[in-house]
Simulated scan of single mutants.
Amino acid sequence: MKKYLICLLAFSFQTIATQDIKPDFDIIQKPILFDQQRKDLTLEYMQAHYGIVQDEPTIKPTMITVHWTVIPTFEKTFNAFNSATLPAARSKISSAGALNVSSQFVIDRDGTIYQLMPETIMARHVIGLNYTAIGIENIADGDSLPMTDAQLEANTKLIKYLARKYPIDYVFGHSEYQHFKGTPLWKEKDDNYLTEKNDPDAEFMGKLRSRLTDLKLSPLPN
């Protein structure tokens, strides 16, 4: 635990330049385990998939990816992300590396915002773009658990806050990530590593984008 806290503090100091920008809403700090194993696996992933070699698994955020979990509760989502290594059940993506999936933020169904990782530490949540993308997961599945109005409000507040801290050019749903293939932003080295996603639904993303027009975001590549 002591080693983990030292590691987390070191990561926090790397974002000191933006720490003077504070949210005017609550963000509950609920850090997942980021021990030496997870750090090493993240660095390995960055090198293998993006050709990025560096001493710390830091990113420079320029985009935000919005997801839904298909996991019914925050507690189960936290437990799914907490391990450093990918569980056996994720066999479809295990060939791309042992690093577990995660995201920097999770928004519960009542709009409660949890921060699981520092914003400038890489999380595995979107193929080809993790090196520059902050991930926001929402407790929803688009079926029995549709996205809620409270989640729409929370995503809006969180994204506007992050856009004040970082030069965010793009906000997109996980289902839209392949728009970046063929652009300079796409760094995935394995052409066969792709997944088809449907989250969040187009209606939710339309509502979210209508609330973010003041950010002057770039349109998605064709």
Rank of each mutant, 00 (worst) to 15 (best):
residue 1 M to A: 13
residue 4 Y to D: 15
residue 4 Y to E: 15
residue 6 I to C: 10
residue 8 L to H: 12
residue 8 L to Y: 11
residue 10 A to H: 13
residue 11 F to D: 12
residue 11 F to R: 11
residue 12 S to F: 06
residue 16 I to L: 13
residue 16 I to T: 10
residue 16 I to G: 06
residue 19 Q to V: 00
residue 23 P to Y: 03
residue 25 F to Y: 07
residue 28 I to N: 13
residue 31 P to R: 05
residue 31 P to G: 07
residue 32 I to Y: 05
residue 32 I to L: 13
residue 33 L to A: 12
residue 34 F to N: 03
residue 34 F to V: 05
residue 38 R to E: 02
residue 40 D to L: 10
residue 40 D to T: 14
residue 41 L to C: 04
residue 43 L to W: 01
residue 43 L to Q: 06
residue 46 M to Q: 11
residue 47 Q to S: 15
residue 48 A to P: 00
residue 49 H to G: 06
residue 51 G to D: 07
residue 51 G to K: 06
residue 53 V to Q: 13
residue 53 V to A: 12
residue 56 E to C: 06
residue 57 P to Y: 04
residue 59 I to V: 14
residue 59 I to M: 11
residue 61 P to Q: 03
residue 67 H to D: 03
residue 67 H to K: 10
residue 68 W to D: 04
residue 72 P to A: 06
residue 74 F to G: 08
residue 79 N to W: 00
residue 80 A to H: 08
residue 80 A to T: 09
residue 82 N to D: 15
residue 82 N to M: 06
residue 83 S to G: 15
residue 85 T to F: 00
residue 88 A to I: 10
residue 88 A to H: 06
residue 90 R to L: 11
residue 90 R to V: 01
residue 91 S to W: 05
residue 92 K to L: 08
residue 92 K to T: 12
residue 92 K to D: 14
residue 93 I to M: 01
residue 94 S to K: 12
residue 95 S to V: 01
residue 95 S to Q: 11
residue 96 A to F: 03
residue 97 G to C: 08
residue 98 A to L: 11
residue 99 L to K: 05
residue 99 L to R: 06
residue 99 L to P: 09
residue 100 N to T: 04
residue 103 S to M: 03
residue 105 F to H: 09
residue 105 F to T: 05
residue 109 R to L: 00
residue 109 R to D: 01
residue 110 D to W: 05
residue 110 D to C: 08
residue 111 G to W: 03
residue 112 T to S: 13
residue 114 Y to I: 08
residue 114 Y to E: 07
residue 117 M to D: 04
residue 120 T to I: 03
residue 125 H to D: 11
residue 126 V to A: 01
residue 127 I to C: 04
residue 130 N to V: 02
residue 130 N to D: 15
residue 131 Y to H: 15
residue 132 T to S: 14
residue 132 T to P: 00
residue 133 A to W: 00
residue 134 I to T: 08
residue 137 E to T: 00
residue 137 E to V: 00
residue 138 N to A: 02
residue 140 A to Q: 07
residue 141 D to A: 05
residue 142 G to C: 07
residue 143 D to N: 14
residue 144 S to G: 06
residue 144 S to Q: 13
residue 146 P to N: 09
residue 148 T to E: 08
residue 150 A to Q: 14
residue 150 A to I: 00
residue 153 E to L: 12
residue 154 A to D: 04
residue 155 N to C: 15
residue 156 T to S: 09
residue 157 K to W: 00
residue 157 K to M: 02
residue 158 L to I: 00
residue 163 A to N: 10
residue 166 Y to L: 07
residue 172 F to L: 13
residue 173 G to R: 00
residue 174 H to E: 12
residue 175 S to H: 06
residue 176 E to R: 02
residue 176 E to Q: 13
residue 178 Q to N: 09
residue 179 H to T: 00
residue 182 G to A: 10
residue 184 P to F: 07
residue 188 E to H: 05
residue 189 K to Y: 01
residue 191 D to Q: 10
residue 192 N to V: 01
residue 195 T to S: 13
residue 204 F to M: 05
residue 206 G to H: 08
residue 206 G to V: 04
residue 207 K to E: 14
residue 208 L to N: 04
residue 211 R to K: 14
residue 211 R to F: 02
residue 212 L to D: 03
residue 215 L to Y: 01
residue 218 S to L: 14
residue 219 P to V: 01
residue 219 P to Y: 03
residue 219 P to H: 03
residue 221 P to A: 02
residue 222 N to R: 12
